[in-house]
Nucleic acid binder design. Structure first.
Lengths: 335, 335
DNA sequence: GTGAAAGCGCTAACAT
DNA sequence: ATGTTAGCGCTTTCAC
């Protein structure tokens, strides 16, 4: 890796424009309180020299970095299985970009990485952190809180018992699940099953709660634990058909599992939605539109969640605390 | 966003350890040329104070940042459609982490963002850039080269006419395609079709070349342009069946399109592989293992590509220039 | 082997 | 409104 070529400094611009460094600095940072002709001269000098501020020097004195960290724990688990995370990242990126912030991505693979991330955040390299804490027992969130960096979580952290002053952005998983199940019930279905997500994630737990809100605790054999993957959906669906062959509706905790369930139903010759109605969660377009039949599902605006997280962190959203986003039912052919 | 708490400086550590700042600095940076007892004392002081070096101050003098940018152009296009990019990112992250480098993610959505990225890179905020240039006519690569930042490209850039001194990491798309087609031919298939990827990407072009290496220019009606998406695969497959109802083998330029093709074939009652053999490209596990039947494909080690890109950029891989990775045929049930 | 001192490029008081 | 000046926290000659 070669050295970067020497770049012009404030000093150089000041000299060229025939003003002081302070004036150049003012112009570069918005130009308030500098008279027009000077602003113009400085601007030209900046242009001609191709001057770009040295962020390190600036940070040294301002103690701001215009950078925030996005921490993603254990990518293998879920992150790379579906576009969920990518969409959120995109929302985050857009919002950060709009506010001239950089995105430092911190992927962690295991325990060793936790310490590393903790050190980095505590090191004051970034102005804040956006954290995706996937699992209930993840030690990372604690580490991060101790690092004393402003943080917004993606999804309700498992240990956030309401009282804690954690800020997070989440979908209304419970409400969405209720809508899904209610829809199935309104369709006249009476034996409604639920394929849960990985229950060490709050989203899965909340969706299960929503299911129970409508269906009560009756028929516990109609609830099968899945893992948010298509394979898990298949397994769960098989189990379901075994336990309760006359099941007439399935609410899967995400689209991926619903697609797996659909596959098994077709394999077993059950017609969807005639014999069994199926509804998913997420509205992952590449999935919902490709299934056969197209999947009815609960949509959450994932990109918006990311955008909101960033906005919360940057303080752009006012003094808002945690936000729970509404979900919407998207009817397609499967239910 | 609250202010970060004031952190101990070198000065504080020096005082506590009863040495000079210079000595502390030496210890912190490896401790060469400092006698053991002092090293020990300094280490303890660092520990007790919880000292973490201020990266901004360090960068200001060293002109290094221990950070590299990952530039991804136009995420919507491909990045979020399949886990390809996520896997590469993971490889990159692992390698960077191992060398104490941070990953600054730069997502671009359109022309405006190009200027922004160019400015950022030219601004000397990072020590290098890893760039994914998806399209042949993308102006971004040019901008980046002009920025004078060491760069490694993911995938062969379209304008890299061999002669140029661009460094990239790519799979042997052409060779892999040849293997795929050869496999189909060895199966005794005679009417082998090809669903290409988006032909404004070199990977798609190279795979098409590979197809032609084996099949020649005969039967141009057996080549249909796709776009790397499942939907594109479906459309192409329909077109193919129309043009040439007796097609007995299909090489799709990626697994996603192959899955779409599979869907259409099933829909039309063609048995796979009996009537039509299908082979994909990538070996995207979530796709290849979920299709019916499981998909035979050409595997490329995506995570390794990412790791290699990082290694090349960091100079860890010796004086290596561009690298083209071998692919392997993975036989499953579809061909 | 260790310390003293000179900046790195910038911003923010404070003068003017 | 503009200039002067004093650091921000660190590395790195250069003396000792």
């Amino acid at each position: 890796m070669t050295e970067t070529a020497p770049r012009p400094t404030l000093e150089a611009v000041a000299e060229r424009a025939g003003v002081s460094r302070a004036t150049v600095s003012r112009v570069v940072n918005g130009g308030d309180g500098v008279r027009e002709p000077l602003v113009e001269r400085v601007r030209r000098a900046v242009e001609e020299l191709g001057y770009v501020p040295n962020q390190a020097a600036r940070s040294l004195v301002t103690r701001r970095h215009d950078a925030i960290a996005v921490v993603v724990a254990e990518p293998e688990t879920r992150v790379f299985a579906d576009p969920f995370f990518a969409l959120q990242l995109r929302g985050i990126s857009k919002e950060l970009t709009a506010h001239d912030n950089q995105l430092v991505l911190l992927l962690t693979e295991g325990r060793d990485d936790h310490a590393r991330v903790g050190r980095y955040l505590a090191g004051g390299h970034v102005d804040g952190a956006l954290v995706f804490s996937l699992h209930l027992d993840d030690p990372l969130p604690g580490l991060i809180q101790r690092a004393g960096v402003p943080t917004v979580f993606g999804g309700r952290p498992g240990w956030s018992d309401g009282s804690r002053d954690v800020v997070f952005v989440d979908s209304d998983n419970r409400g969405g699940a209720r809508d899904a199940v209610r829809h199935l019930v309104n369709l006249g279905r009476t034996r409604v099953a639920h394929i849960t997500g990985a229950l060490d994630q709050t989203s899965a737990v909340d969706r299960l709660e929503g299911f129970r809100d409508i269906m009560g605790d009756a028929g516990p054999q109609l609830v099968v634990e899945g893992d948010f993957t298509p394979g898990g959906g298949e397994r769960a669906m098989r189990e379901l058909l075994e336990r309760c062959p006359d099941v007439d509706a399935v609410f899967a905790a995400n689209d991926l599992m619903a697609s797996g369930a659909l596959r098994v139903l077709r394999e077993r010759g059950r017609r969807v939605p005639d014999d069994v109605a199926v509804i998913g969660f997420d509205d992952m377009l590449p999935v919902t539109e490709q299934t056969d039949p197209p999947l009815t599902t609960i949509r959450q605006d994932i990109e918006e969640m990311g955008r909101l997280m960033a906005r919360l962190l940057l303080g752009t959203a006012g003094a808002a605390s945690s936000v729970v986003l509404r979900t919407t039912l998207v009817r397609r052919a499967s239910a």
